[in-house]
Design a protein around this nucleic acid. Structure first.
Lengths: 250, 250
DNA sequence: GCACTAGAATGACGAATCGTCAAAAACTGG
DNA sequence: CCAGTTTTTGACGATTCGTCATTCTAGTGC
């Protein structure tokens, strides 16, 4: 087998396969949006797609695996938004805020994907997903975590932040991740259910971040800087930019 | 119909029905623990219970409704633990910490119930649950939120905490709820997946709370008080008390 | 005790959905 | 065009969900 010519068609195959997988995932998202999560069945997905059921099961080992694949897409989108947010100039704490803003934006502009992420965290889904895809998700989560940790490291190097006893970069990244995830995951349902019906999403998210970062003594403190202005400025910048470099032509 | 005798049998019926519902929920938990979430089917639940499928569907309108019922149980347990934690003496910020501790304890001592709560947040489950049970859950969440808000109100009255611009009691309760939920929901999976494998759960949770409450300037600050000692003291107290007043004789 | 009735329980059954696999089709290099 | 390989197909079997006509039970009047 000549190395150059033999695997070229293979790569084409692989590429075509990946592309079709993306189309299937897109279609699944559309079904979820239109008919809700209860409306997504493999038969329906088959009917609306251009391929047969067997082929779909050639991509996803189970319906749950499909959800995990959607969650991978979700994390990729999140990564895009994170990187985009880090392009915005500002001091280190503003950049941390930018990440939270990106997370919030993600959960609002792509509610379906965010809910897929939530669903894919569920044990019933994890148990029936393929190990390969779960590993893929883990890898993306690593990348996201790395971005956060990098940001924190820079802040320390710049002198905007100092680690106190019991604080590690890992722990700080985790705590902020938890805050962002929890806030965004709880907001819609609780507000919808009337639990905290008075709350406005954006100010509340901003408050959470400010409390956390003030607690860390991450300079400049919220008393020394108008982070609401920062939030609005960054939001405006992101809203202008046409969402993401890897945008489908659609 | 004489009022006294006519509804006595009715009440007995109702009570027996509620009791059986609890037994079914307990059995469902056992199945979840033993065989995982994928191992819980209505047929299996029927087989292991003493009643027939029709009767089970007389309690729960769908499998998803069963999960929502489990999440209601979950919140009831959480409420118990919260009330128990509030019995522990301490200043206002220690009591706030006690609530976080109770949440953490809940997620570790009852992992299955906690995962049911997570699962029941999922749109696929919400969509197929009965409105009545969803309303019941909302009611319990109200009670939990009320506890938090009450605690914050007291802290303000005592002068340990002052609201700054943009802060409301609702918002503070929500932010802490988000922190607790996010932290506990993410810890197991992320650690298991090796994302933050170095982190120890309890110190990390404590760190998160301290950052948040320091950011709020809730006195005494973590620099003025040894909250690790508080955490351990309260943990010891709770561990001694035999978990909850409403304990089944089992 | 016995007939009667309202309401609950039963479990066999139909329906919906999942996932598989032998056969067909498409593609490969020669 | 052919033999070999890979991919696709969709009918089919298997599993699980949810229902409903029937049976049973507990209370009531006689």
């Amino acid at each position: 087998m000549s190395a150059t010519t033999a695997d070229e068609p293979l790569q084409k195959r692989q590429q075509a396969k990946l592309q079709r997988e993306q189309q299937l995932l897109l279609l699944a998202q559309q079904i979820l949006q239109q008919d809700g999560f209860a409306g997504l069945t493999m038969d329906r997905l088959t009917a609306l797609s251009s391929v047969s059921k067997g082929t779909i099961y050639n991509h996803f080992c189970s319906k749950e695996d499909l959800f995990t694949a959607l969650s991978v897409d979700s994390l990729q989108r999140q990564l895009q938004l994170f990187q985009q947010a880090l392009q915005i100039p500002g001091h280190s704490r503003e950049q941390a805020l930018a990440l939270h803003l990106a997370y919030y934006r993600f959960s609002t502009t792509e509610p379906t994907l965010f809910l897929c992420l939530l669903t894919a965290t569920t044990p019933g889904v994890v148990e029936k997903s393929s190990p390969e895809r779960l590993a893929l998700r883990q890898q993306l989560e690593f990348q996201l975590a790395a971005l956060c940790q990098q940001l924190i490291t820079q802040a320390i190097a710049l002198g905007d932040l100092q680690l106190r006893a019991g604080q590690t970069i890992d722990a700080l990244a985790f705590v902020q991740w938890a805050q962002a995830f929890g806030g965004n995951a709880l907001f819609k349902p609780t507000q919808q259910l009337g639990l905290f019906s008075q709350l406005q999403a954006q100010p509340t998210m901003l408050l959470g971040v400010n409390l956390l970062l003030d607690g860390l003594n991450w300079r400049p403190l919220s008393s020394e800087w108008d982070y609401q202005a920062s939030w609005q400025r960054m939001m405006a910048i992101l809203a202008t930019q046409q969402l993401g470099a890897a945008g489908q032509s659609n």
